[in-house]
Design a binder for these strands. Structure first.
Lengths: 225, 225
DNA sequence: ATACTTTTGTGTACAAACTACACATAATGA
DNA sequence: TCATTATGTGTAGTTTGTACACAAAAGTAT
């Protein structure tokens, strides 16, 4: 079909986490269509760049963010999803650490902002649907792949990890059992560092060990919470 | 980017299963590039059709097959993956029942054939990579979603199900434990019909009950083998 | 028709994993 | 120094997983 007139774009649902809040990064659109409304960052793919390059470029252009983990989510292709004509969008799913939270609006974005996933504004295009898919993926995947660590600082107290899981899974977790299981997976290094936030006993810091994780994965040992 | 010149195609990895063999449906290409070589069925998306419609149309045109289960697999977008220029392909993953095994080559396909997944020919484009992703998805997904039934006749003896799992997972399964667990999931109806294939005690037929499955899923009970 | 072969169908004992649960420790702040 | 807050740890009971063998119902060969 040499008369095909379909445009290809990428969109990125980027999640961040801080103190019990899971947030998603949205931009306020500077141009039509949906000018002034909130949307997932993204844009058209250039002829010579890969899809991942396109996502990273658009994210950097529009939000200034430094992404930490990126994977393809799903491709949305309903003929009516963009009022400008046929646009198929490959959606990605990204995670950033709290210390990379700084954001700067530019190019197509009038404004960039973190939104708690429970307090979302109205979204442009079919972005509500995309976001829903991304949230489901995040909630599902956190139980069988070690992606939760990508939302925390490199060194973190155990309680942070626990709170992240309770928040994402939406239910309480037994502290002792969770720790027992997580430590039993053998992918965390306990450091000789402590951190104290306010009152209470200082917590030991932990660090995810990706090398050990991939080694265990090779041996067929699976991460599962 | 109004000067974007990217073409969009769909490809479908279709699996079939019969008597301990997992097969994939391939076509021999009638035209360049890769004329005369084997490839996954697929083709360009029309301007007004959805991606799923495109897959089903191409599959029907090229192979005549009636697909039974279809889900999106992954989108492949490396700039160099097609010698004709930039072509991004949304790959799908399909399953057919043994009684829909009949295939007929036409349009772009000089020939259509089932290949055992362990005896694959050289493949065009990046189709080897796509197939690899599809096989991994099938093997992974069969343990936590009831898609195995889509590869069997509607009514099947328990031994067929067991053999499918041993084949897909590539390891032996304890017959009693497997049956206990599968029956315990409560998504199989035991019918009052028996079937006898050659010598041996006749087997009772079972049937997957999708309604019950979705009901249980709603209640948070998960399928897991 | 009888014995042999083939495939289906079923229960139990032991091991491993999961779940529920409470109190000491180390810090801060009044 | 006493109250408050958060971290760190073990055990008993329950549930789930695993290993394993023999009877039942059909076909096949003599």
């Amino acid at each position: 079909m040499s008369n095909q007139s379909i445009k290809l774009s990428v969109d990125a649902v980027v999640f961040g986490y801080e103190e019990g809040n899971i947030s998603v990064l949205l931009i306020k659109r500077k141009y039509e269509p949906f000018k002034g409304e909130w949307a997932i960052p993204g844009g058209f793919v250039l002829n010579e760049e890969s899809l991942e390059e396109a996502v990273e470029r658009e994210l950097h252009e529009e939000t200034g963010i430094k992404i930490n983990y990126l994977e393809q989510l799903y491709t949305f292709g309903k003929p009516s999803r963009d009022p400008r004509g046929r646009v198929v969008s490959v959606a990605y799913f990204g995670l950033v650490r709290p210390n990379a939270y700084k954001i700067v609006a530019s190019t197509d974005a009038e404004q960039v902002q973190w939104f708690n996933i429970n307090e979302l504004p109205k979204l442009s295009f079919d972005h509500k649907e995309i976001l829903k898919a991304a949230i489901e993926r995040l909630q599902g995947k956190i139980t069988y792949e070690p992606i939760g660590f990508e939302l925390l600082d490199k060194k973190f107290p155990f309680s942070d990890l626990e709170k992240l899981y309770t928040t994402l899974l939406g239910r309480d977790i037994d502290r002792r059992n969770f720790r027992k299981k997580m430590v039993g997976l053998n992918v965390l290094d306990e450091l000789d560092e402590k951190v104290s936030k306010g009152s209470g006993r200082p917590a030991n810091l932990f660090q995810f060990n990706p090398k050990r994780y991939f080694q265990l994965k090779e041996e067929g040992i699976i991460f599962e919470i």
